[in-house]
Structures are given as C-alpha cells and as structure tokens.
Design a protein around this nucleic acid. Structure first.
Lengths: 189, 189
DNA sequence: ACCTGAACACCGTTCAAGT
DNA sequence: ACCTGAACACCGTTCAAGT
C-alpha cells in the first residue's frame, strides 16, 4: 500500500499506482499469481502501458502488492530474536512464513523468485527476508537448538517448496503445517 | 519411446509420433517443460495440429516423453520391496526419484501435475507412481522404520517440491540430495 | 484416416500520439 | 511528466481443405 520512498509522483500518477496495487491484489487472489496483466490494468481503469510503466516486471508488481505482508514477516522475525528459546523463535517464524505463503497466492512464488535472483538486479524482497532468516537461524544454531549444517538458503528453499507444493490444495494450511513439522523434526540438533 | 498399446497406427502416423517424442525430449531438455509447442512440431518436421492430435495436452506429451523413466522408477521400487531393510529400501527409492526429477527437466512438474489430477481424467502416471510409493512406505512403516503418521501423498508432494525447488539451480543434484536428507531425518520413527 | 498450414484468440510488450 | 490505445509479436487451439 505505502509506496517505497522514491522521488515524488504527480497526483494522478500516484492515484494510478494505488489503483493498480488494489486491482492486482484482487486479481492475484482471484486468479492466482499469473493473472493477465491486461485484466489488472482494466480493473484499475488504466491503460495497460501505465501498469508496465509502474511495474516493469510481474515480479515487481507481486512484490509491491505483498510488500506489507513481507515487511510484517520481517518485523515479526526481529521480535522473535529475543524469544526465550532461540529454536522456538525460529520455529514460530517459519510457521508464520508458511502460513502467509499458503494464504496469499503468489507470496510463495514471489519469495521463490526472489531467491533465484543471483544478479545485481536483486529484488528488495530477497535482502529483507534473507537477513531476518539468517539472524534467527544463526541464533538457534548457536544455542544448539538447530543442526549446524543447515544453511539459510536451504531453509528458505524448503519453506517455499512447502508453500508451492500445497498451493491450491484443499486444506492447504493444515497440509503445509504438517509438512513443516516433518521438516522441523529433521532440523533439530 | 515405446507407445502405450492402443489401436494400431498408420505407418506415417507412427513415424510422426516417434519424431514428436524425440523432438519434445530435446526441446524439454533445452528449454524446459514450457518449451513452445510450435517449436516442437517444427523440430519434428510436422504440422502443429498433428502434435495436438497425438497429444491433446502438454501434460500428455510430458508423460509420453518421460514414460520410460517413470516406468524405470516404478520397476526399481518393486525390486526394493524385497530389500533387507524396509526403511533403507524406501530411502533408496526416494533418492532415485529426486535424482531423476532434478535431471530431467519436466519430470518433477509432470509428477506434480499428475498428483493434482483428482478427477477421473487421472493420468496414467499418477497410478503407477502412487502404487509403488504406497507399497514401499507401508512396508517401512510396518517395520517401524518410518513414522506411522506420514501419508503417501505428503511424501510424494515433498519429494516433488524438492525437485521443483532446486530446478535450474547450480549444483541442483547435490542441493536436492541435501534437502532430501533433511526430510528423511524427519521421517524416521 | 491422417496431415497440413492458415486462421483465430489471447496475452505481454512497445511506441507514437496526446494532455 | 505522465497517460493512452493501438500495433506488434508470440503461442496455443481449431478448422477447412487436402491426400
């Protein structure tokens, strides 16, 4: 919702930006992360080229739409860095990530794509999530709660895999949670 | 390669069928499981509508191309039903599935899609893989090697998720194997 | 019976023209 | 500066016409 702070926009441009976000959110929820871009532009009452001007790639649009959710996850993670049990802190955060990923269609795909971005075109999203996950994991490993040979990358891959695997399943939240439990049993020191 | 036994085909139709399989295999390897169908038809030296006639969906083409590989996996699984350690038998099979999935682009997607097919349009592939996995899992559970609360569905979802998650990664085979090891640690009784 | 290329529909991307 | 609709390219799907 709140635009990442860049240079100011003309009033009409800003309004279009916000309409596009709202329309995209609705479309993603309804049709999934591959909803037609023309559809989104039309719902927003805007030319399709305007969509493209604001969001050069579908990925950029996805991240903008779910920015708040992703930031909330990162914020939660920071709070959990002072949890009494480091291992439990990580577990709680991972459950939240999976829950979010299987609720918002597209979040899982968004995170997955962000993880792929190895170049300098690194998305904003990757840095934030990666940093949070690293802090939580290292703390849990130092405390001896989680195996030392697990990498952040593996961890996030796996969590995204769970979200993707349960995408659009009946009872996906429960399924996702069960799979996560299995994973966690394998992660403990 | 060997066509599933249906009614006989005219000589030219059979030749086209085989050319399409070969062209599709090459295209999938080169461009991934979403390789353009027109491309495949052109490589096969065949009209695009002919491709569609033989394979009504992309899924059908994928399964036909990887039929041999999938059958080999099922065959391996049957052999492992007499392995001395039931748990080890399952583990060996799962490793083979993941290895295959991260080698052949499209196999993971193919299996995943097959797993989704809940209707009567159930793909051939789903039945075969599902049966093999069930036999191996139940044997391992009866022997007390693997937790009793794990379902076949969960197991296959997870394995596919690993293959998908490591798709097109550098060192994907090693990555996939590491993730599988984590999973297996969580599965043991 | 089977094959073919052309036609159609759909969607993403770019661009010249408007304000 | 920013917006717009039209143009273009791409790909999947269908169909009338051929053998």
């Amino acid at each position: 919702m709140t635009r990442p702070t860049t240079r100011p926009l003309r009033a009409d441009a800003l309004r279009n930006y916000e309409r596009l976000i709202a329309a995209a959110r609705a479309a993603f929820t309804e049709l999934g992360a591959n909803a037609p871009l023309d559809d989104i532009a039309q719902r927003a009452g805007v030319g399709n080229a305007t969509l493209y001007r604001h969001f050069p790639t579908r990925q950029a649009l996805l991240e903008a739409v779910y920015r708040d959710h992703i930031e909330a996850l990162c914020h939660l993670g920071e709070g959990l860095l002072t949890a009494p049990s480091p291992g439990e802190g990580l577990v709680v955060w991972l459950r939240a990530v999976v829950a979010q990923g299987s609720t918002d269609r597209g979040v899982a795909a968004s995170l997955m794509a962000a993880m792929e971005a190895t170049q300098t075109d690194v998305s904003w999203c990757r840095g934030a999530v990666f940093a949070t996950a690293t802090a939580l994991l290292e703390r849990a490993q130092s405390a001896g709660d989680i195996r030392a040979d697990v990498t952040v990358r593996q961890l996030l891959k796996f969590v995204n895999a769970i979200a993707l695997a349960t995408e659009g399943e009946p009872g996906k939240c429960e399924q996702a949670d069960q799979l996560l439990s299995l994973l966690l049993d394998g992660l403990r020191a």
